[in-house]
């Protein structure tokens, strides 16, 4: 089944992420990854989600996201020219020989070594999913101890922007928590 990437701008209000996540559960959508983080404005956040399914299902997800009152804008990214990035931290078991080999691999993949200890090292790599996956495959024989990935974040190239339609929060309360969680 095909993968689809969608991006959404959501209001920074407590519980908004829960609404988004609940939607997937409730409508039985298959979500591959979901990332949420801050944007250049502190009153909205941006969510990138990758789902598996048919194009029609992706369309339904999009329409259902629009039904959430706190969702400002949704964009189906898979049809657009985009930059998609995933970041992985991979902890690998090493001895002296392996350390050398891995360092070489890191050069080729433009990965960074971010921590080294006596018998392990952590490498960081960023890129498209496929690149990370093939990098992992090469590391696997050395023995991967742990791995964590952020999930994909995506942005349209050029003038393919997620519009916020001049969004202004309705009730600006000094004391209110500005968070989607």
């Amino acid at each position: 089944m095909a993968k689809h990437t969608l991006c959404a701008l959501v209001e920074n209000r407590p519980g908004v992420l829960m609404r988004v996540v609940n939607l997937f559960r409730r409508r039985n959508f298959n979500i591959d990854s979901l990332t949420v983080g801050r944007t250049h404005r502190d009153d909205y956040s941006r969510i990138t989600m990758v789902m598996e399914g048919s194009r029609e299902q992706a369309e339904l997800v999009e329409k259902n996201l629009y039904k959430l009152v706190n969702v400002i804008e949704v964009e189906y990214m898979s049809g657009l020219p985009t930059v998609e990035r995933d970041l992985a931290l991979i902890k690998v078991q090493v001895d002296a020989a392996a350390r050398r080999d891995i360092t070489q691999l890191c050069d080729i993949f433009r990965a960074r070594i971010v921590d080294v200890s006596a018998d392990s090292m952590i490498v960081e790599t960023t890129g498209e999913e496929a690149k990370i996956e093939s990098f992992c495959e090469l590391l696997r024989p050395f023995g991967i101890v742990e791995m964590v990935r952020t999930g994909i974040v995506a942005m349209g190239r050029g003038d393919h922007n997620l519009r916020d339609h001049g969004y202004q929060p309705q009730v600006a309360l000094a004391g209110a928590r500005k968070s989607v969680l």
Partner: peptide
């Protein structure tokens, strides 16, 4: 109750401050 009723309401609110109330 906002958690419980989330999937069975069109929308819901937990009011945090009295100043919000009229608007909510």
């Amino acid at each position: 109750v906002t958690g419980i009723s989330l999937p069975i309401t069109k929308h819901n609110y937990l009011v945090g401050h009295v100043e919000e109330l009229a608007h909510v």
